[in-house]
Design a protein around this nucleic acid. Structure first.
Lengths: 99, 99
DNA sequence: ATTACATTTAGACATTGGTCTAAATATTGG
DNA sequence: CCAATATTTAGACCAATGTCTAAATGTAAT
């Protein structure tokens, strides 16, 4: 389901990568608290980035009262890893054996 | 040296990913032969993509006569892999042990 | 030297994409 | 119900980016 193309595109933005690192470290944060980590940007902008990350499945949201909590979803990242690893190995072999 | 941010950005384009997959499979191709694989695009456009991939170190070029050969450089990809793996593990632990 | 071929570079154009402000949609508390 | 808080959505704006055409560069062959 989760297209590696979309995931890569979502990851290509610096702010979104920062959000991912934040969620990895914190585990779970409300949208407002995430926005607080980006004083140079509007909450609307952060909300927009969160929706993109959510659409491609890199994060998940849960609504609790008037808060919306976000957390990272590592499952989707697995597919991306496989694609990248596929670039490094396999294919028409070009390497010196036993290097 | 090779910034993972730049590498991700370079990988975020569909055509460039296609080029990488092509070079992984073929091992080594002249610019013109690469362009032939993209009939819907100009050679100038492919050249532009090649230069971007080259700048971030994802591919390397070697000039032989009037041809310029390109090949994939897997070294740079290692740093990217480390960053992505870092997102999946570590951080404030959130996982069920022994899952 | 001149022609032909391989590739890049320069500049223009249209689209995408990140950001902002302002308004809309919940949800909670008095 | 009304006000306050949390978050998103809509629309506008500008910068970044992918693509094209046309011209420039470099190399080889006649």
């Amino acid at each position: 389901m989760a297209n590696t193309a979309e995931v890569l595109k979502a990851m290509s933005d610096k702010t979104r990568r920062h959000i991912l690192e934040l969620l990895k470290q914190q585990g779970r944060m409300a949208a407002g608290d995430i926005a607080l980590q980006f004083p140079s940007m509007t909450q609307a902008t952060i909300s927009h980035h969160l929706s993109i990350l959510n659409e491609v499945g890199l994060i998940q949201s849960e609504k609790v009262g008037k808060y919306i909590f976000y957390e990272i979803n590592t499952t989707v990242i697995q597919d991306l890893l496989q694609w990248i690893i596929g670039l490094t190995e396999g294919g028409t072999n070009n390497e010196t054996p036993d290097a």
